[in-house]
Amino acid sequence: MIELHVLLGLMIIGAIVAMEIEDLLSSVIALGAVGFGLTLAFLLLRAPDLAITQLVVEILSLIILIRATVGVKLPREKIRSRIGYFIFAVIFVALFLSFSVKAIAQLPLFGDSLMRIGSQYVAEAKIKTAAANIVSAIILDFRGYDTLGEATVLFTAVIGVLAVLRKSRKQA
């Protein structure tokens, strides 16, 4: 999977650009580049449903983020280098990386998934749900309550957005 390595490397570079560039609009567009790289990675990993969803969601979130940054006139970000804060963040990230390397060593090797539950779903999808797409059989049938919970979270977040934005209209 050398192409996946290249793609992940490009995504990391895009993420660093999005983090370090000064202009907010450029930063948001760099984040979009990372998201579209993720779409390609999903295609390479044999997840076409996810690639489609990620593409749509990526476009929508780009539009939302550009709405937040367009017309924003910021004075140049003054570099207040609090050295203690910076050192704390670096130590925290380094600790996180070292622990995660230890945890990853315990996982099964890449390309060798155990599929303890997934194999059962694959075997039963045709008989129990008559769905050709096993992923949709799982989200709509085997784990329908998860999807119901997801719809609740989505609805709550939309209500939150409406509540936050409506207040501004009343005050203005």
Binding site: L50, V57, L60, S61, V153, L154, V158
Partner: peptide, 13 residues
């Protein structure tokens, strides 16, 4: 698939 859609809603909020 669920998590991606929730991520969009959280970003919007």
């Amino acid at each position: 698939l669920t998590s991606i859609v929730i991520g969009l809603a959280v970003t919007a909020l």
